[in-house]
Amino acid sequence: MPISFDTGGLQQLDSNSWGDPGTGDVVTQSYFDLVPDLPAPLEEVDLLRRALAEGRAETGCLIEAFIIWVDRVPALLRMEKFPLPNQPSGLAFVASIVVPKDRCSAAFQILCPETGTTGIREAVLMTQIGHENMFPPHPYAPGLGGRLPYNAADDIRWDPQFPDHPLTRARNWVARTVPTARLAPGFAALPPFTGPLRA
């Protein structure tokens, strides 16, 4: 794998995944030997964000997306949420980081599921900010509808109020892990991703 990062405190599940038995969070790493499936190059961040939001709307919701640096190489950070499969309620929050190159990519991510009583963060904040303020337009694609609405409760400013929430855990993992991540020199030196292949 062209990416290495700190997995301290996690139990190895297989060669490319680790789990936290206390929370159920799962960390994985992947390598894809093909042109990245991103809809736009990292330099076109507004177009990239809108396309990612529209692409995720059918199955969940893109919460936020940023261009970050992994070992001095540009990468895409996505925060997304999905309904938990085969369960009547609850969400999984995923933080994924992909380092795209011209003909391949490497990625690592964490999936953090809701457990126990679900929806507490949303319910508490609804009483604080009001139902009328809970569902603003999506910042990357105003007017976008989808399986899950964009929710004000997902804003990072609420994380300190909910330190054990899966979204907070995902963001904290990013903050801890990205600074420790290192890329194999050969991978880091590959030409950058310049956009999707055109027919």
Rank of each mutant, 00 (worst) to 15 (best):
A123F: 06
P83F: 11
P185V: 00
P100M: 12
D25F: 02
A188F: 00
A75D: 04
L91A: 06
A189M: 01
L47F: 06
L47D: 13
V45R: 13
G119C: 08
C112Y: 05
A181T: 09
I120L: 15
L125F: 02
G60M: 14
E132K: 15
R176V: 02
S89V: 08
L76Y: 02
L91F: 10
T7V: 15
E114P: 10
P21K: 04
P192T: 04
V94A: 11
I68G: 02
P85R: 07
A170M: 10
P2D: 01
L125W: 02
G55K: 07
S30I: 05
Y140G: 01
P83N: 11
P41S: 10
T118R: 07
P83M: 11
V174T: 08
V94S: 10
A188E: 00
Q161W: 11
W69D: 15
R103N: 11
R49L: 02
G8I: 01
V26T: 14
L48V: 00
G186W: 00
S30V: 09
E54V: 15
G143R: 00
F5Q: 14
Q128D: 11
K101T: 02
T127Q: 14
G22W: 04
P100N: 10
L52D: 08
N172G: 03
A184S: 03
P179F: 03
L111N: 13
A106H: 01
A189N: 01
F162Y: 13
L34A: 15
G119E: 05
P85S: 07
N172I: 03
F193Q: 06
D33Q: 14
I110N: 05
T117G: 04
L144F: 04
V70W: 06
F108D: 14
P88M: 12
A175M: 07
G143D: 00
A184C: 02
V73S: 01
C104T: 06
F162A: 13
G60L: 13
F187Y: 03
